[in-house]
Design a protein around this nucleic acid. Structure first.
Length: 307
DNA sequence: GTTCTAGAAC
DNA sequence: GTTCTAGAAC
């Protein structure tokens, strides 16, 4: 049955189409049973949707959302979700490749459902953990993807509901996906999905998240450098060359004296010293001859903003 | 889901 | 005065 307005939702249309007829700009990949598309309004730098195709034994109506899927015979529901996860893992690899090509490193991609979706046809979100996609604009957007607030249901959490030790009464309760339980979550105060710091406005949280991302990227660059150095020289002394930054890079994007991402900077400990391999390398290396650590970049970004 | 905008917050 | 949210309309 068409949705109000007389036409199928865009997602449902894609789920009923021949995947090859979906434009390349929209389609990320597909399998016999699913199609993965780029989210039209990305809330993370990378954001895709895995859609189950409408094929027997499932009807269009069965696949309306997670609640209708969970109401199917247990084995059918389980098989569908397992298939979606399998295909999502493939799509995740495609995105990770893209991350490597564009940013020289890959970061976390979360996979899960919204407890109360606002578009018809089941869709599994694949969203990069940065949460600084161009379409992230409201508190509701943030809360609906926060990994701990409960509205975003990780695929593995949903699959756990099918395990043998789960009480049928518990399954019935969670599978109901009751609006009264989940809708209020969207109104709660916004918390950073990475460090849980609260932020009063969206622009402030965006700045904060941008700082988290820059820091994560800097640390990935340092790890890569340390790895290269360990491979080339394998000298324990050399590995100390890349300094621990005293000044957190986050100060840059943070602007005025806001509580910032600096709290998480204890995680800067990134195993530089442990990284060197076995075997005996050559002895002393001229430090000045080594490639420069990414300090210039960091300083440039961390220009003082004490106003 | 987005866009628009009144008025609250700063 | 400007920024930002939140509710209505779509």
């Amino acid at each position: 049955m068409p949705s109000p307005g007389g036409s199928y939702s865009q997602l449902r249309t894609y789920a009923m189409m021949d995947p090859l007829k979906i434009p390349d700009a929209i389609r990320l990949c597909h399998t016999d049973t699913s199609i993965t598309i780029h989210d039209k309004w990305p809330k993370g730098m990378y954001h895709a949707l895995v859609l189950p195709r409408v094929l027997p034994p499932y009807t269009m109506h069965d696949l309306a959302d997670l609640r209708t899927v969970l109401a199917l015979p247990r084995a059918q529901a389980h098989a569908l979700l397992l298939g979606l996860k399998r295909d999502a893992l493939e799509a995740k690899k495609v995105i990770e490749n893209e991350m490597e090509l564009t940013h020289s490193f890959a970061w976390e991609i979360r996979m899960g459902f919204h407890a109360l979706p606002s578009v018809e046809h089941l869709h599994l979100h694949l969203i990069s953990s940065d949460m600084i996609g161009e379409a992230f604009k409201t508190k509701k957007h943030m809360n609906s993807f926060h990994p701990k607030m409960g509205f975003f249901l990780d695929i593995d959490e949903v699959l756990r509901w099918f395990e043998p030790d789960i009480e049928p009464s518990w399954f019935a309760m969670v599978a109901a996906l009751d609006k009264k339980t989940y809708a209020p979550i969207l109104k709660e105060d916004m918390r950073c999905p990475i460090c849980e710091a609260t932020h009063a406005t969206v622009p402030k949280l965006r700045k904060h998240l941008t700082a988290h991302f820059q820091k994560m990227k800097d640390e990935a660059t340092e790890r890569e450098l340390a790895k290269l150095m360990a491979m080339n020289y394998d000298d324990p002394n050399l590995l100390q060359v890349a300094p621990e930054p005293d000044e957190p890079t986050d100060a840059a994007a943070e602007g005025e004296g806001e509580a910032d991402a600096a709290e998480s900077s204890t995680s800067t400990e990134n195993g530089l010293k442990r990284k060197h391999g076995e075997g005996d390398g050559p002895e002393v290396i001229d430090v000045d001859a080594l490639p420069e650590p990414p300090q210039a970049k960091r300083q440039q970004v961390a220009a003082p903003s004490d106003s």
